[in-house]
Design a protein around this nucleic acid. Structure first.
Length: 750
DNA sequence: AGCTTGCTGAATACACACCTATTGC
DNA sequence: CTGCACGAATAAAGCAATAGGTGTGTATTCAGCAAGCT
């Protein structure tokens, strides 16, 4: 690309245009852009943004990588005395969304869409007329205004300031560093108060471990985690009470005074007075608080009291959105508290101490088993209770008890009683709480269930769904909708037949190609560089393809890749059939409906209906699955059919028409009807016309909707938003309309 | 010549180990 | 003692679990073919 002809500020020679996700990614996009632009234009006195005079703003590349936040390439930009708050990073860290484009995030939190203009058009707008430049300016203003509103609405500053104060790290760390630096900072602060010194430990593996990330010593780094009780799968139509340990791991660490400074080295155990130490299930020994109170337990007390305050605020709030934000805040504090345990188990971290983490989980395992046994043994008919209770499930810190009573209020009473009774067998501050009742409760397997959640008798609070397709982001919206609707019908409406009917309808719609493309878009995160994958995967292959098509907008590491499954040759692997939804739409690639049915819809439906129906498989077979609208392209080598002449078909009965006579113009419209249908021209034409008119009307409606979204009813729609269902619908209707118009054109005499 | 039989290579099915993404707690 | 160049190290909460996919090896099925038989 010769840059000479274009001195415009909008297209610097060295910098690609922003993909839609980067538009509000100040630290990784806007600031580097400004720096590089100034460099390209030779504006030497520009990059001095900090509050330290004559200190030049510097930039360097880094990558951040952690299990929880994923891997991301980042830019580190030094601006002394000013806090950078990159909203994209903040949203990515605090919220699990399918798409993080400014558009999608605004729609999610503000209920507002924003047009998404492809970067190539931006140059055109700038180079156009005053009117197009005005439009560009409005668009840019929106780009700036939406992040500001998100910042306010999500109470980001408020939450970040609190987190920074509680953990004692600079605010910038909250977005550029992980959990461990927060824990370490608290340890340093507490140790300083006590006059203790913290050792500067060497990083785990001593050798020159750089370049290839192989090895890494998987043997010593791991320890046993929590117990997950066997899930007694089924659909429970009676109340199931849930008993939870409050902050299990923190409370264990506090109760048993687990800390670096209270761990007794094996060689010294014999010398200790047995009354002053605790011997743990792992065999490790820690001194009791009377002798020396641990640093970690004290940190935990502070974090938990901060969380208690947050919970009190949450209770006082009335606005549902504010409630949601405050809930996020208390959750962040809970995660910080749990990270203290995690920090001790992080073998690649600054100060691993597996004695602490392994002891913590060992206590937890004992406690959940103890709770299960005690409850099962106590709540029996023999002890005067209505029935023998059963623990049907439990994960880490919870047990789900079916007391076998029909009444929600009765189950709550029993739950409260059991919680108090079991709590009494533990030392402070360990506490088992009765929290909620599920009724009904659909238990599919470990870590996957759904139910109506009750916290007081009389009315249920909400439908709670865990681990099922509706809450997983690597499903398409179709699956989420079908499963979600079925759950609503089954749990709330108690209409199992209706749910089954809905499934059949959805399958028929899918196979008849009546699905919105937006419902079929799957997104998955690109977790590492393309070459680092061992197995081929659809989203990885597609990302590579997109890099070839347009490097500027292709997904980068850490981004979520959106794709649809299009039809491929017979036996093609799934990774060959993944395609960019916009590309598929624009090139008219057919969707592989069967693949969606077999690989995405079938299993979730079976799992859902298995506990409910006798023969769930009938949902996947039968009349509604027979209607395939399009013919499959033929087998070998990417579809040999591509080279075959497409024969025109009768508009009425779709029978193939005889080929046009030799020598005639092949481009001329074919006759409309076959000999058999020849008499029905009038009604067939009327039908075709009606279809075209209907499509025209819906296209106009969608177009207007998009115009409204862009804020002007007398200008072209430029938006190509991957996240907007209207966009897909508009494109599809446009295509259908073109086909319908072509059909109408085959009746030249009418 | 027409049919069956047995063989062979290819296609298909299946079990299994492993990788990857994501969630629960 | 200060400024600069150069090289080294930098950082990263945890485990349990489900599910879908890939790749591989083995067993089974099937089509095609030649030989043999009627």
């Amino acid at each position: 690309m010769p840059a000479a002809h274009d001195p415009s500020l909008l297209s610097p020679p060295s910098l690609p245009p922003p993909p839609s996700t980067r538009r509000y990614n100040t630290t990784n996009f806007d600031l580097p852009y400004l720096l590089q632009r100034a460099e390209a234009l030779g504006v030497a006195d520009f990059p001095f943004w900090g509050r330290v005079a004559r200190s030049r703003t510097r930039m360097r590349d880094t990558t951040f990588s952690s299990k929880a936040y994923g891997t991301r390439d980042m830019k580190e930009i030094t601006i002394e005395g000013r806090v950078q708050l990159d909203l994209l990073t903040a949203v990515q860290r605090e919220h699990k969304l399918s798409s993080y484009s400014l558009n999608a995030v605004s729609a999610h939190f503000l209920g507002e869409q924003k047009e998404d203009v492809h970067h190539s058009i931006i140059s055109d707008l700038q180079a156009g007329t005053p009117e197009t430049r005005r439009r560009l300016a409005v668009y840019c203003l929106k780009d700036a205004y939406l992040p500001q509103r998100l910042l306010d609405k999500l109470m980001m500053l408020y939450n970040f300031v609190e987190m920074a104060r509680v953990t004692g790290v600079p605010m910038s760390y909250l977005l550029t560093r992980g959990q461990s630096v927060k824990v370490f900072s608290q340890i340093l602060r507490k140790a300083a108060q006590r006059g203790l010194l913290v050792p500067n430990m060497k990083p785990a593996s001593g050798g020159g471990a750089f370049g290839g990330n192989g090895g890494g010593g998987p043997d010593s780094g791991t320890y046993e985690g929590a117990t997950v009780l066997e899930a007694k799968q089924g659909f429970y139509r009676t109340p199931v009470a849930t008993l939870d340990f409050a902050s299990l791991y923190p409370s264990i660490m506090m109760a048993h005074n687990l800390c670096y400074c209270t761990l007794v080295p094996p060689g010294r155990v014999a010398a200790m007075d047995p009354d002053t130490v605790t011997r743990c299930p792992t065999g490790d020994v820690f001194v009791k608080p009377g002798l020396c109170k641990g640093v970690l337990p004290e940190i935990l007390e502070e974090l938990l009291s901060a969380r208690k305050r947050a919970k009190a605020d949450l209770k006082a709030a009335t606005d549902p959105f504010v409630k949601a934000v405050l809930d996020g805040r208390q959750l962040a504090l809970k995660i910080s508290a749990n990270s203290v345990y995690g920090f001790t188990g992080a073998t690649v971290g600054k100060m691993p101490c597996l004695e602490i983490s392994a002891t913590t989980t060992a206590f937890g395992r004992d406690m959940i088993m103890h709770t299960k046994d005690l409850v099962t043994k106590t709540y029996t008919r023999a002890n005067g209770y209505p029935a023998d209770c059963e623990v049907i499930y439990g994960d880490t810190d919870s047990v789900m008890v079916d007391f076998r009573v029909p009444d929600t209020a009765a189950a709550m009473d029993l739950g409260r009683e059991a919680a108090a009774f079991v709590s009494a067998t533990f030392i402070s501050p360990i506490k088992l709480e009765f929290e909620k009742v599920y009724n009904p409760y659909l238990l599919i397997s470990k870590k996957r269930y759904a139910g109506l959640l009750w916290t007081e008798p009389g009315h249920w609070d909400k439908m709670d769904t865990k681990g099922i397709e509706t809450v997983r982001r690597d499903n398409c919206a179709l699956v989420r909708n079908v499963v979600g609707t079925c759950l609503t019908k089954i749990l709330i409406d108690r209409d199992e037949a209706g749910a089954a009917a809905f499934v059949k309808r959805s399958i028929a719609d899918l196979l008849l190609n009546r699905m919105d493309l937006s419902l079929l878009v799957i997104t998955k995160a690109l977790t590492k560089e393309g070459g680092a994958y061992d197995n081929k995967q659809g989203h990885v292959e597609l990302a590579a393809k997109m890099r070839v098509r347009d490097p500027a907008t292709a997904p980068a590491v850490g981004d979520r890749v959106a794709y649809v499954i299009v039809r491929g040759a017979k036996g093609a692997k799934a990774w060959e059939k993944a395609e960019d939804p916009i590309f598929a739409l624009e090139h008219g690639l057919p969707i592989d409906a069967q693949h969606y049915l077999d690989h995405h819809l079938a299993q979730p439906i079976l799992r859902l209906f298995e506990p409910i129906m006798k023969n769930p498989r009938e949902l996947l077979a039968g009349e509604h699955t027979r209607s395939i609208a399009l013919s499959t392209p033929s087998a070998a080598a990417g579809g040999i059919m591509r080279f075959a002449q497409v024969r025109a078909t009768c508009v009425n009965c779709r029978a193939a028409l005889p080929p046009p006579p030799k020598g005639s113009d092949p481009a001329a419209p074919a006759g409309a009807l076959c000999g058999h249908c020849a008499g029905q021209e009038g009604e067939t034409y009327a039908r075709a016309l009606a279809a075209a008119n209907g499509l025209e009307a819906s296209f106009a409606a969608l177009w207007t909707q998009c115009q409204r979204c862009q804020g002007s009813l007398h200008q072209d729609v430029l938006c190509t938003s991957r996240d907007c269902p209207i966009f897909y619908r508009r494109k599809k209707v446009a295509k259908d309309l073109a086909e319908a118009a072509a059909t109408v054109a085959r009746f030249p005499d009418w």
